[in-house]
């Protein structure tokens, strides 16, 4: 439980935010970013890529104690760059190639020279997700009920 108590340092926060975006990147986004790399890094596998399960938990009543809701497929990969950085990729679904690419970009994020490139990828994914979420929120908002009161009888 030390991990829980340990304060996340600022670099962790940035990396965590980046990993969150990489988990939701599409194959097209990851492949395009990989193809666009002028200097392809030397990558060696540490673990995976592999597909397995994560038991998704909920909370009783929404905010109470946890219970096991059901599992989800997860693919993950851990890689090492020839320069030593370790990258982790983990995402919902069975697409191992996406997990591997996510791991590579997580590792590149830690390498000073490549950080800006990965941040550009992060921004691209973030803006796509924000646009999708925005669209869904707008469509949902259009189905909001406007109540009006009908006055009956006379007073």
């Amino acid at each position: 439980m030390d991990a829980k108590l340990k304060q996340e340092s600022p670099p962790d926060t940035a990396r965590k935010a980046g990993m969150r975006l990489l988990a939701r990147a599409s194959s097209e986004e990851l492949n395009a970013a990989w193809e666009a790399l002028a200097d392809k890094p030397d990558v060696s596998p540490v673990r995976g890529p592999e597909t397995g399960l994560v038991m998704v938990r909920g909370r009783i009543g929404g905010g109470g104690d946890a219970f096991n809701l059901g599992e989800a497929t997860v693919s993950r990969a851990t890689i090492r760059l020839s320069t030593g950085e370790i990258g982790h990729g983990q995402l919902l679904g069975t697409d191992k190639q996406r997990a591997r690419l996510a791991a590579i970009f997580d590792a590149l994020f830690q390498r000073n020279g490549d950080r800006a490139t990965v941040e550009a990828l992060h921004r691209k994914i973030a803006s796509r997700i924000a646009a999708e979420d925005r669209r869904t929120a707008e469509e949902t908002a259009a189905t909001r009920v406007d109540f009006f009161t009908m006055v009956r009888g006379d007073d």
Binding site: A3, K6, A23, R24, A72
Partner: peptide
């Protein structure tokens, strides 16, 4: 890593 990451 010592922290939780989003899977999607």
């Amino acid at each position: 890593l010592g922290f939780a990451v989003s899977l999607g």
